[in-house]
Design a protein around this nucleic acid. Structure first.
Length: 296
DNA sequence: CCACCTCGACCAAAATCCAA
DNA sequence: TTGGATTTTGGTCGAGGTGG
């Protein structure tokens, strides 16, 4: 009984994550041919085809899907065993972290986060990138280190998530807007002309559903893709925008904010990362920074 | 035609074996 | 114990098949 080749575990992990011999080969800096042979060895070892041809690419077998959630933590744990015990020295840590957030995050929390990082780890650079979709592949591939999101069905099951803060939707209008005087009833709110914020171009959201339950509907005059666009329009028009309160904190300066007259469930903004970085001391430190900055 | 996967032939390095 | 022969391992190269 020969011992199984544990090196294959790393290959398997990448192969399953990529779902393609060619891409896995690029990632491990091997030729596609060498990767194909590694896959052949894996098939031999596991007794399962793992990835089978489907058209131009490959699709995972049920066994492969089952293994996919197992290999990541195993590889991570194995690498942690072999790494020399490093103590994190923030003063000399030189590293760039990529954070992927929906617009509004940088405007709101960026300054605090940068100040905090600068103070504790002057050699660390933060790179903020826009989050235009809910794909979790950048985290998996390692092009993004940390992400904030509302955890939903689209979130990859293999990601780690931790709640950052709760938020609720509020309505925003310009100063002097008719809705700034008197009580805002659901009917008065619905009468206004609204800006709808949606990245995917959906026409209706939870607000419309809540209004509908009261027999009301609102008129959506404009639809935009981001909170900052919506709020810029609010400044210049009589339109009403409904945005998450904490997420848009500083963006709403000099505007009038009031609670929505309908009840909506709270949303939870979470921090997402890949299990691979779970034990990384520097990454753990950064997660702590983000948590603290967002908790204020 | 292009992108992708697989295979045979071949090669270098490492591991193993074995006689002296 | 050691030095050389042999086997194993894991890679490249190039060719070939397949499907969009």
């Amino acid at each position: 009984m020969t011992r199984p080749d544990l090196n294959l575990l790393v290959t398997l992990d990448v192969l399953l994550a990529e779902g393609s011999v060619a891409r896995a080969a690029r990632r491990l800096r091997l030729s596609p041919s060498a990767m194909s042979r590694a896959l052949a060895r894996l098939r031999e070892a596991t007794g399962d085809p793992l990835l089978v041809r489907a058209g131009r690419g490959l699709v995972p077998t049920p066994r492969a899907l089952e293994l996919r959630t197992l290999t990541g933590p195993i590889v991570e744990a194995a690498e942690a065993c072999l790494r020399p015990a490093e103590s994190l020295d923030l003063k000399t840590l030189a590293r760039t972290f990529t954070l992927r957030n929906r617009e509004g995050f940088v405007e709101n929390f960026g300054a605090g986060l940068i100040a905090r990082v600068e103070r504790e780890a002057p050699g660390v650079r933060l790179r903020f990138v826009q989050k235009l979709d809910r794909e979790s592949s950048p985290l998996r591939e390692g092009t993004v280190d940390l992400e904030t999101a509302v955890v939903g069905d689209m979130t990859g099951p293999e990601l780690r998530a931790q709640a950052l803060f709760h938020d609720r939707f509020v309505a925003v209008v310009r100063p002097g807007h008719p809705l700034t005087s008197g009580e805002v009833t659901p009917a008065r709110y619905a009468e206004g002309h609204h800006i709808h914020v949606s990245r995917r171009g959906n026409d209706v959201g939870p607000i419309d559903t809540a209004l509908q339950a009261l027999g009301l509907s609102r008129k959506i005059t404009a639809s935009v893709g981001s909170f900052s666009e919506a709020l810029a329009l609010v400044r210049a028009t009589d339109l009403v925008a409904s945005v998450p309160e904490r997420y848009t904190g500083s963006l709403r300066e000099n505007l009038v904010t009031f609670p929505l007259p309908v009840a909506l469930p709270e949303i939870t903004i979470s921090l997402l990362w890949h299990p691979r970085l779970d034990a990384d001391p520097a990454h753990r430190w950064l997660r702590g920074c983000v948590r603290e900055v967002c908790a204020v």
